[in-house]
């Protein structure tokens, strides 16, 4: 199989690392070669965070190049826009319809762009969910990222059972049930 390129982007603290761990775990589970690249440290303090996941028969470099992502998973609208040039022409953007103002906007140095998703929909295939609201309905706003992952899962090469097994093996045991529920919710959208 040709190498598939997945990217996860968001704001530091939104749980991109957990999501990428699940994506890495499922690739191994399915018997692929896989490489992941994360950024730790400084970037986690509310900064822009990007994680690359590549899987296939044989993967060389761990980074996804501009214009090469098959699936771009964005946990925030502005971050979707920041990394949209990484997406292939026929790739899909999965986006959490949520806004977090960067400090540059809070201090009035910059303005948060309007209509980001509407504009992106004109040029790309976009699937969106307000995962924060959905997660609150489930009773735990922290699992919003797994809802987004559930929506993204439909555009990757694994079965739903595989996903649920890997989630069970990856998340802390106390949160397995709520995470599985969150995944099912995203998957059913």
């Amino acid at each position: 199989m040709k190498t598939r390129n997945i990217m996860i982007v968001g704001v530091g603290g939104q749980g991109t690392l957990l999501t990428s761990r699940i994506l890495g775990g499922i690739a191994i589970h399915a018997g692929y070669d896989v490489k992941l690249s994360e950024v730790h440290g400084m970037a986690q303090r509310g900064g822009s965070v990007v994680t690359f996941v590549r899987y296939g028969d044989k993967v060389e470099e761990p980074i996804v190049e501009v214009g090469q992502a098959d699936v771009l998973i964005a946990f925030e609208r502005l971050e979707a826009l920041r990394y949209i040039h990484y997406l292939k022409k026929d790739g899909v953007l999965i986006v959490n319809d949520w806004r977090i103002d960067p400090i540059t906007v809070v201090t009035g140095v910059a303005e948060y762009p309007e209509h980001i998703l509407e504009d992106l929909e004109k040029t790309h295939t976009v699937y969106r969910v307000n995962a924060m609201e959905e997660a609150k309905k489930l009773g735990n706003s922290r699992v919003f990222n797994i809802i987004v992952l559930g929506l993204a899962a439909k555009y990757m090469d694994y079965t739903k059972e595989d996903w649920l097994t890997v989630i069970e093996n990856t998340v802390p045991s106390k949160t397995v049930e709520i995470n599985k529920k969150a995944f099912e919710l995203g998957y059913s959208i």
């Binding site: 704001v11 530091g12 603290g13 400084m42 970037a43 986690q44 303090r45 509310g46 900064g47 822009s48 501009v66 214009g67 502005l78 971050e79 826009l81 920041r82 949209i84 040039h85 960067p102 400090i103 540059t104 906007v105 140095v109 910059a110 303005e111 948060y112 762009p113």
Partner: peptide
């Protein structure tokens, strides 16, 4: 290969105190 998109001009998101 084919032309790639230029990055969008977006507000920076530097790290901040929690």
């Amino acid at each position: 290969g084919e032309e790639v998109m230029a990055p969008a001009q977006v507000p920076a998101r530097p790290p901040i105190l929690c």
